[in-house]
Design a protein around this nucleic acid. Structure first.
Length: 464
RNA sequence: GGGCCCGUGGGGUAGCUUGGUAUCCUUGUAGCUUGGGGUGCUAUUGACUCCGGUUCAAAUCCGGACGGGCCCA
């Protein structure tokens, strides 16, 4: 399957062959995380935990079910979600008085509790997060990790005294994003969504997008500033030093398993997955190359090599299966193992071990005695070059098109005056979505692609 | 909301028009062989979505249900 020719088919094929998920589970859009895929997701989650813990967030876990009465407190929010939530209407044989929703996101589960938790300015800022599954009734075509009905994600929710404090939180979220994206070797862009596309109930939304090889964008996460839009209806307020009751300013931040979908889409190739070393369940696979007369010697040496690499902290797989080496190479390429070490009689005689990099296919040797330090250098180099290559690819998929004449497989930087009428007209006429305006201001000289008035930059694309 | 298409071993498929023993590839299992890029050989497990109708006989024809996919608004 060729990545360039049919991205969708290629993607499904790559996920299937690598054994990341099993889509045969008998509910559409609800796939089984199989062991290899879940290992990757757990590694991603670990980075998220580490970053959020380090920035003063506390991990919590809220119930999955939300009473309809709480769910409906914020009008825009319910309007945005009611066509895509699952309802629990019965318990045992009884119909429920108050129906329950399976959380599509947890604002309405958390905020009644926040109202109890926050009392004084000394309780602020309140910063919590959870890593859970969430449910949305997708009606479009579902696709592993990219569009599913049960979504694995993290969501952080914060409460602050002032709008400025909340704004600073958003800056912190962006810094966290940058560190996580670097580990996943993912380029991204930050775009302030249009008013008609922001999160239901938000003051504004910053979308985190990455561009797939077919030129379509995939939203991998978002950061929202709520102002007091939720704290007022939910009664989350604090008593200031002056004794007044003041509603808190809130933000949220979330990213999902789409991170994994993006990694696959951006990095994998026609031979299978290419995993960034930081999230590879196995960073190194050691393959002994036997011949009839040296099986014992090579086997021992390979075991020792794998042992020394494990002891040095790498995630290592020793593949001593009784099959031909070529077949092993093939298997681990599909699974995206970043670094392959081959150890045979020739290597042993020379005191070296042969390596092959998954990202660029290059081969060479490193010293057997100091294999851990050699492997460290190689893995670092793989991470760096994967990120660099992905950034260059993403940049090449963004085209300047001030008037809106956009090649099919590109994201366009257009001119937009900012008014909703022009925006919606542009989307309809060009069959594109306006992703938003740059979160970090960009220099732009041009006119609105619709009305011709002075304009700022906006980005438009087809989405996955 | 409107329209179209498709359900065959674990995965991918042929067969359906013209009703009669279900094809091939892959995977799994057992054995031998092999070993620096998918070894080869042999044996073997495994399937017509469901319900009803027509018929001596249904994967095949008809109706419905369920499931899946696509397009348009």
């Amino acid at each position: 399957m060729r990545k360039e020719e049919d991205f969708n088919e290629w993607y499904i094929d790559a996920v299937e062959k690598a054994g990341l998920s099993d889509k045969r589970y008998p509910v559409k859009g609800m796939n089984v995380w199989t062991a290899y895929g879940w290992k990757i997701m757990r590694l991603i989650d670990e980075f998220i935990r580490r970053e959020l813990d380090a920035t003063g967030h506390d991990e919590v876990c809220f119930p999955l079910l939300i009473p309809e009465t709480e769910f409906k407190k914020e009008k825009d929010h319910i309007k945005g979600f009611d066509s895509e939530v699952y309802w629990v209407t019965h318990a045992g044989l009884n119909e429920l008085d108050v129906r329950l929703v399976l959380r599509p996101t947890s604002e309405t589960a958390m905020y009644p509790m926040f109202a109890l938790w926050v009392r004084s300015h000394q309780d602020l800022p309140l910063k919590v997060y959870q890593i859970v599954n969430t449910f949305r009734y997708e009606t479009k075509q579902t696709r592993a990790f990219m569009r599913v009905r049960e979504i694995h994600f993290f969501e952080s929710h914060t409460c602050h005294e002032t709008e400025e404090d909340a704004q600073r939180q958003i800056e912190e979220d962006v810094e966290i994003l940058d560190r996580i994206a670097a580990r996943l070797c993912l380029p991204y862009s930050l775009l302030k969504r249009t008013d008609w596309d922001k999160f239901p109930g938000a003051h504004y939304t910053v979308g985190i997008d990455t561009v797939m090889p077919n030129g379509r964008t995939l939203q991998i996460g978002s950061v929202h500033h709520y102002r007091t839009n939720f704290s007022v209806p939910y009664g989350i307020s604090y008593e200031s030093e002056g004794g007044e009751h003041v509603p808190v300013h809130q933000t949220t931040y979330g990213m999902s398993e789409r991170l994994l979908g993006a990694v696959i889409g951006v990095h994998a190739d026609d031979a299978g997955l290419v995993l960034p070393p930081d999230i590879a369940p196995f960073q190194i696979v050691v393959i002994p190359i036997f011949s009839k007369d040296n099986a014992a010697r090579v086997g021992e040496a390979a075991k020792a090599l794998a042992g020394s690499l494990s002891a040095a902290g790498f995630r290592v797989k020793l593949d001593d299966r009784d099959v031909r080496p070529g077949s092993k190479f093939f298997d681990w390429e599909i699974k995206g193992v970043p670094l392959r070490l081959e150890l045979g009689g020739r290597d042993l005689d020379g005191g070296v071990v042969t390596f092959a990099r998954r990202d660029d296919g290059s081969k060479g040797t490193i010293g057997l005695a100091d294999a851990p330090s050699g492997a460290r250098l190689l893995l670092d180099s793989i991470s760096a070059s994967m990120l660099e290559k992905a950034k260059a690819a993403q940049a090449s998929r963004i085209a300047d098109a001030p008037g809106g004449e956009v090649p099919d497989d590109r994201v366009a930087r257009i001119g937009w005056c900012g008014c909703e009428e022009c925006g919606r007209r542009f989307e309809e006429e060009r069959d594109l979505k306006i992703l938003g305006t740059p979160f970090r201001p960009e220099r732009f000289e041009g006119a609105c692609a619709v009305c011709g008035k002075p304009a700022n930059a906006a980005y438009a694309a087809r989405t996955m």
